[in-house]
Write a protein that binds this DNA or RNA. Structure first.
Lengths: 107, 107
DNA sequence: CGGTATCCGCTTTGATACTG
DNA sequence: CAGTATCAAAGCGGATACCG
């Protein structure tokens, strides 16, 4: 645990993590889903300001990464619910670290 | 990347932190400077693949944020050394959290 | 309702040339 | 050596329209 970063910039896992949650909307979405599961339209409304295209793309990415779960109920009209996975919930630690530092730094 | 998280996202410090270190190069630069102080050209060489323009801009941002210190030795030719500040060094905790999660998630 | 497809503008990024 | 200026290219995000 001493030096998490050995040498050079060979640690791609940090980069990958930031690439995943560092986007403009990923965090807002995850943040929302951490609080409660949500359907598509509702999620768009809650996040606020995100377009359908971007929301779809983000959700596809997050689902693909295993952070979010997509449940389809084939009714008419269709009903799709998104919820955070255990994997996604584990991000709370990362958020906490970022939050702590953000406060310490920005004041 | 700086965004207006209007509703449903009250914690801007997390966002601010990611905006600061989530850029394409910020982390590579910080990572390098965490290991040892560095002069401009050397830094560009070590980071690898970054242009002068972007490196300058990044450094200005990081210095402005108080994460990096800029020391000018007015010799001929001029000599400028960049080194991490205490503030910047405190990011190690954040990196550690990201690293831990990155491993746990992506492998 | 829950998306995908298309087009378009803006920011980010980079190569190159030039200055102190 | 350590940058700044300029210009071109790429990618992302967003508005709109349309499909299952």
């Amino acid at each position: 645990m001493t030096s998490a970063f050995s040498d050079g910039f060979c640690d791609s896992s940090v980069r990958a993590t930031i690439d995943l949650i560092g986007g403009k909307w990923s965090m807002a979405i995850l943040w929302q889903l951490l609080q409660e599961e949500c359907r598509y339209a509702e999620l768009q409304r809650r996040v606020g300001g995100i377009s359908q295209k971007v929301l779809s793309a983000e959700l596809r990415t997050l689902v693909g990464a295993g952070l979010v779960e997509r449940e389809v109920v084939p009714t008419v009209p269709p009903q799709v619910t998104y919820r955070i996975t255990e994997e996604g919930r584990s991000l709370e630690d990362v958020f906490a670290a970022l939050h702590r530092w953000g406060l310490q730094h920005g004041g």
